[in-house]
Design a protein around this nucleic acid. Structure first.
Lengths: 141, 141
DNA sequence: AAGAGCAGGTTACCAAAAGTAACTTATATT
DNA sequence: AATATAAGTTACTTTTGGTAACCTGCTCTT
């Protein structure tokens, strides 16, 4: 892990201050960062967005296969939330059997870039995190 | 929202492929992205990391005041997980009364940079997301 | 010496969210 | 008439999250 300089830390602190340094106590209670992040950064939503970044168009059951382990219920819920927030579009083709296609909006693609940076970081360091966990678990006995 | 070019989309798809294109079905079931993200990207953990990026050292009850609305129990849990994964360090001073200080590790600072990018994006677009939600809610009736 | 206070939690309890598996709807095929 | 299919929904169980009271080990006040 490359060390971070004091100068970089100061820059980061400045950015954080800009983000919510002006917020009052009462405003913190309903904090958009908390709200938006809570919905879009859970494990399933991130995977859905990543898969739609890779396969530009996917149907419900295709997504279900790709997003390994997700249930109908949760997939359906997440898709509604992600559509509602504007990350993806849902198009229904009234054929028989019915066909429904999901794809990222421009907004979703913008978000995907951020999520992708984060995911790449996680992928790069996941081994180290697992090692950290083991070390901690041993230290605790 | 600035539109994304087809070329950019291709680059993104390539990165995603690199990340988990090689994974087998059986490996997807335990996916480190899912695991690590699930723990570090929940709303409380993100706020804890952001506050420790702003105030370099914080004690338990100071954090509790900053991270508005968090309970003892959840703060205590999150701190353990974040320490276990290596994002922050916990230092106990056996004074009277006891003093415990939390601060980001270098690893935590590295993660903070990614979280900060994401948070800035969210802050920039949170109004639009709220507008999207309203539009969707009205469309559903 | 008895009681209050403080930091940093833990515990017991209740509510909300996530996961599981069976069911639904509308049509087409056998 | 029975079976299949896509895209979900529903009823139920399990897990997680949140709330509030409590604990521990010491010191300071009365």
């Amino acid at each position: 892990m490359e060390t971070i300089t004091e100068n970089q830390k100061l820059k980061v602190a400045k950015k954080i201050k800009k983000m919510f340094g002006h917020m009052k106590r009462s405003e913190m209670e309903y904090c958009p960062i908390r709200d938006v992040m809570a919905l879009a950064s859970d494990k399933w939503s991130i995977l859905i967005i990543l898969y739609l970044g890779y396969y530009p168009v996917l149907r419900f059951n295709q997504l279900k296969k790709k997003v390994y382990g997700i249930s109908n219920k949760v997939l359906s819920e997440r898709l509604k939330v992600l559509e509602s927030d504007g990350y993806l579009s849902r198009t229904l083709y009234p054929e028989v059997p019915i066909r429904v296609e999901y794809e990222l909006t421009d907004f979703g693609h913008s978000y995907l870039q951020k999520i992708l940076d984060l995911s790449e970081w996680v992928t790069t360091y996941s081994d180290q995190i697992m090692a950290n966990r083991k070390k901690y678990a041993n230290a605790q006995g």
